[in-house]
Design a protein around this nucleic acid. Structure first.
Ligand SMILES: [Mn+2]
Ligand SMILES: [Mn+2]
Ligand SMILES: [Mn+2]
Ligand SMILES: [Mn+2]
Lengths: 159, 159
DNA sequence: ATATAAATTTAGCCTATGCTAAGTTTGCGA
DNA sequence: TCGCAAACTTAGCATAGGCTAAATTTATAT
């Protein structure tokens, strides 16, 4: 079982196909911030009754002007609404994105916990992984999580 | 088994802890391009004997000036070396990063294949996921992949 | 009611990452 | 060998996403 660990994973022959993959990643990254913001905004509204800029800045670990700037972009792009000096609301589009993001976040966390990743590390990794999963992969991941839960339910094969 | 699918995943109480997670993601993203570049450069050198800017641009789906620009940054950061108008070489640091990136890439692909993700989609998702996995999660992922391979070797529980 | 504190916005700056158009250098075929 | 095409670089531009410092607005506490 000597693996091909040191072989190119990448098909250098068809550069068009390879380029398309990287283009998707760049697209993923451009919506990633939108997803994290609307998810946080939804959480804040549910928990505190409103989403304030200052709380977003604290949770995201960036400055208040940075959040202000991003919120204005997200407003242009139709994810949120907010009047000057007032708190932030989600549009229907924003709510839909938040809901989807939250589901994926749950699913990734559930999987990471199931394969034995410590809670802290799972939370950290999930925050990045959640934006790079296609629908098909999410399906497969859910099935794999169930299979692993069942397996570790019966026998045990830890460390 | 009604899940808490619609609960905040996020602890809004400890904003410092949450902020640290997002800070890690921003850090991950800042090395992500370096990882993809050095991995591609290593592949090109092994396959073609040299890594040329034009091939990188084609494979990445970006313009030649963009690659030129990034290569200059990667040179400043000590990942690559190249003299004007000549092809691109990896430093020891670059080779180490490439090797690590390739291992993760293999591992993520292997996992995705194992849980039944179609090859095309697996390749696409792996290109993004590979940059957001901690060492601990990689370990757990490798173990889970083995467990799933063993499981589907004996019985079968597809679709 | 008003002073002060908190929150938000604006202005001005930076780097990373993308682009096109135009210039330079290299390499190859006639 | 030398001229042209390919490859690379430079210049100049744009946007996203960071920052600090300084205004402005809103909210609170006496
Ligand atoms: Mn995230
Ligand atoms: Mn990401
Ligand atoms: Mn990648
Ligand atoms: Mn990524």
């Amino acid at each position: 079982m000597a693996e091909d660990r040191d072989m190119p994973v990448i098909d250098l022959q068809d550069s068009g196909k390879r380029a398309a993959l990287f283009e998707r990643i760049r697209r993923d990254h451009s919506v990633e911030i939108a997803e994290d913001y609307v998810e946080l905004i939804a959480d804040l509204i549910e928990t505190n009754g409103e989403a304030r800029l200052v709380d977003l800045a604290d949770l995201l670990g960036v400055s208040r002007p940075t959040v202000n700037n991003t919120i204005q972009r997200l407003q242009k792009e139709g994810y949120v609404e907010s009047k000057p000096y007032r708190s932030i609301f989600l549009t229907d589009k924003g709510r839909a994105v938040a809901e989807h993001a939250r589901q994926r976040h749950h699913m990734v966390l559930d999987f990471l916990h199931t394969i034995g990743v410590p809670a802290d590390i799972a939370e950290a990794d999930a925050e990045g992984l959640e934006h790079h999963l296609s629908e098909q992969t999410l399906d497969c991941l859910a099935r794999a999580t169930e299979a692993l839960k069942k397996a570790s339910g019966h026998g045990d094969n830890q460390s």
